[in-house]
Design a binder for these strands. Structure first.
Lengths: 209, 209
DNA sequence: TAGAAATTGAGGGTTTTTCCCTACAAATTT
DNA sequence: AAATTTGTAGGGAAAAACCCTCAATTTCTA
């Protein structure tokens, strides 16, 4: 059971917000309004799927500032910026920072909805990946230190006797750990295990500059 | 031995080109100039590492048009757009299409060089990945149709007897193919094989089980 | 058309993995 | 104090994988 997507709108302009809501709701999407960036940040829940329609210029915290704070929180909610002013460097900066779109007023309803759909699709596939990753990590957490060492040996293609020599333990012990790893990771073959470890890499959160 | 990176500059403005060349060459980078997009396209060689500094507005083919054509060619050369006019929708469009940056004149030398460095790093890691991929694909090409079927079986964790039943051939034959696959792919263990197939994805047509 | 590669099958043997069982000491948790 | 987890280790047996050689088709290619 997954939650229904919510299109968050963060904009201080009452008329604009109303107009946006009307358009978005007209296609059956759920909308939540915030007139201040901080209010959104306070209410933000990472597990809620959706996307964020974010005004650039606002009193208090600006759109780009909110984007930075969300990035710092490792939030992956796709952001569509909305701006009334044609500031190219700003647009480029927020796009480079991961925004999925940057719309300038006035814009066509269809353009907006298309962008929102794209953002929601983006969010969905992203969440599915995170889901898999979380499940895999939960399994890794079940392994004891010794089991992890054996797992690494298996994944790098070492035979049990090699692992036993490296860890300076008996072949029998390696067999025991190996069986335990397979059980805890709930896989029935080595290829499955390798896939699980490889696709949902234990460490290395991909840091891009 | 890898080729030296080249910073391609495509711009019809002679003064601009000269200024850019001077800045880029001042840090020891190699530059090649084109005053028309078509000229670049004609001279373009996919195997040449580097990046592309591309003016938006030009007589004949525009910058974004060139970007489209390069995309159609599956070219992965990172593109930095240069524009004198603040066109936000255009900037957003080309960024969404994969441009690594979009600079507006006038810009600081340092900003330009930083962007170029980023683009070159981008290109380098990209090429390294493509390199690995190409090597893996070269190995895949060595496999006979039957061997590929057996490979798929192995990677999905099936035992030889299961594979033999599915392909309706003898266990001995599967063993023979299996050995042949390991040899041709130059791996010594199943985990290595799985990694090779997984990281350098060979899109397998969905096999019914 | 002759040779090379692919596909198939087999015999026979070794090595490795897997699975069943047992066992015990130390640390941790309940 | 009792139960569980972790790490250790062994015997024994079945299954699977890994080696080697040999050979009959078919199919592609020089």
């Amino acid at each position: 059971m997954s939650l229904e997507a919510i299109v968050y709108v963060v904009d201080d302009d009452a008329a604009m917000v109303e107009s946006l809501s009307w358009i978005i709701e007209s296609v059956g999407l759920k909308v939540k309004i915030f007139t201040q960036a901080q209010d959104f940040l306070d209410a933000y829940k990472p597990e809620q799927p959706g996307c964020l329609l974010l005004d650039v210029r606002m009193p208090g915290m600006s759109g780009p500032e909110l984007q930075s704070k969300l990035l710092a929180l490792n939030a992956t909610l796709p952001i569509i910026f909305i701006s009334g002013h044609g500031d190219v460097p700003l647009a480029v900066r927020v796009m480079k920072a991961g925004a999925v779109d940057f719309l300038t007023k006035p814009f066509n309803d269809q353009v907006l909805l298309e962008s929102i759909n794209r953002a929601l699709r983006f969010d969905k596939t992203n969440r599915e990946k995170q889901q898999e990753n979380a499940q895999a990590e939960a399994k890794f957490a079940l392994l004891s230190p010794r089991e992890i060492q054996v797992l690494q040996g298996i994944v790098s293609g070492k035979q049990n006797k090699v692992i036993s020599a490296e860890l300076m333990i008996s072949l029998k012990t390696v067999e025991a750990h190996r069986a335990s790893v397979m059980k805890k990771m709930s896989v029935r073959s080595v290829p499955e295990l390798v896939k699980l470890v490889l696709t949902n890499g234990v460490q290395d959160p991909v840091t891009q500059e």
